[in-house]
Nucleic acid binder design. Structure first.
Lengths: 266, 266
DNA sequence: CGTAGTGTTGAATTGAATCAAGTGTCGTGG
DNA sequence: CCACGACACTTGATTCAATTCAACACTACG
């Protein structure tokens, strides 16, 4: 197994570190490059083009707008902005959050390459949260009215977009269960395993990665305080299940992590 | 305001009590009647037919299967069953739940008339939870492959179904926020207000209704224990915000309830 | 009429939050 | 290039909201 070595801490937040670490030498295109097409995108097996044929991908390509990259902290959109588009993460990562009346935000989701952002705005025609880049990132913007028109022409695309939305619904319900009945340790373990499989999906190491978000972001997402997240990390490390160093994390015992959340590890 | 009087306790769980209480005399069709069509359904302004014209509604009608009513406790489907259809609640109510490894269930959602059930199964082709009737209920079954075919023909239907799914996603994210940062009292108040507006949507009293679910169901849904839910109900009643009597509930001070969850009551 | 399920209430316990103090890390501008 | 300031993170002590444990009342239904 080729677990790519993590670079020194001076580049922990380097915009490339999460995106191209273990890409093969045959793929030289910069992940932030705006001139890439859906057909040549390394994510086309996960993203919208899945299940489309060449002609169809070309049609999709026509409506996708590849905007300039976002810097860390830049907003993709803000709560109550008019809904116009959904977005596909091409590189980097994002967080969605809502601001509570008391001013403090609550994180509602994290988005990694190949994932779709903004579907919460479809019904009300306004985004129900704000979404911000966690590092140097690039996205594909897909104007929703055009996506609808194209979906109408391409049954495959309609089918797939229904599936993407259904997946989001199923995922949200899992989080509902997580938050309503799991302990701090179970939530944290589940979160790390979730990230692990999402990184694996984009051909990055499932056991060794950089957390793009702060402890505070994780806490808000999991309904815990920063202090608790930090304590759980320390305790998991003491138990030998993970190795943490700042944003660098290694899952050293996946099956023990799975055991925490009650998944049988035959 | 015409707040319909609630019937005696001997009919608290009567299958009609939630469905037809304040219907006008001009509408005599039994809500469990299987021979109703979408065109004549009293829910057609909320359910799938919304935004469809007469011809289109007729086409939808053709694919809808109106099954026999379900008794209290009957399952609509079970976790891991093959996904074939989504369902629209015509009368009664349902709960979705997943069984945790420890055997105890966690409720993931409640469904009232006019709401759509089963979208969590679209992506994986298997239902990710079990769904059970909470009282005598009736549903419309919509085979998903046919819904897709029809959506392809009717842009209005495609648009509307995207909106229904987007709404579900937005709703789930609100619950995420609720569970991750609200206290037991805030969750309970928010839950009651949510039910209130959903009943209002189907022209029932927003301040006086019957809870179709147990305290335990509510607890599982909100991430609280039965005891806590019971205590919060008692305490809200002592404060004069609600009046509870078994499954009967009256919201006597809506703005105070809204104030609990931090909504400005101008 | 009895029994299982549902709901309430009280007392003790506890997991996570809060409060508090400190260290580590990063990006900035002198 | 270093020093500074702003965050980000950690760790400990204390508090508190909600759970757990326990006992009992109510309701509904065969």
């Amino acid at each position: 197994m080729n677990t790519p070595s993590i670079q020194g801490k001076e580049s922990v937040l380097d915009e490339l570190s999460l995106s191209v670490r273990n890409e093969s030498a045959t793929q030289k295109i910069c992940p932030h490059n705006s001139n890439i097409s859906c057909a040549s995108c390394r994510l086309n097996e996960l993203c919208l083009p899945i299940a489309l044929n060449k002609t169809e991908i070309h049609q999709l390509d026509e409506i996708v707008e590849r905007n300039r990259p976002l810097k860390k902290g830049d907003h993709l959109y803000r709560q109550n902005d008019e809904f116009r588009s959904v977005f596909a993460v091409r590189s980097g990562s994002f967080k969605s959050y809502v601001l509570s009346d008391t001013g403090q935000g609550r994180v509602t989701g994290f988005y990694l390459p190949g994932e779709i952002i903004g579907m919460d705005g479809i019904a009300s025609k306004h985004y129900s949260n704000s979404t911000q880049s966690l590092e140097h990132s690039s996205i594909c913007e897909i104007p929703f009215s055009q996506l609808e028109k194209l979906s109408h022409q391409l049954p495959n695309l309609q089918h797939h977009f229904f599936a993407i939305m259904g997946n989001e619904i199923a995922k949200d319900q899992q989080i509902h269960t997580l938050l309503s009945s799991y302990s701090a340790e179970e939530r944290t373990a589940s979160f790390l395993l979730g990230l692990s499989s999402r990184y694996a999906r984009v051909s990055l190491s499932p056991t060794r990665f950089l957390l793009p978000m702060t402890r505070s972001d994780i806490g808000e997402y999991l309904g815990l305080t920063v202090e608790t997240v930090s304590r759980i990390f320390t305790s998991l490390q003491k138990k030998g299940l993970i190795e943490v160093n700042n944003r660098e994390i290694e899952l050293t015992d996946l099956s023990a992590l799975r055991a925490i959340i009650g998944v049988d590890t035959c």
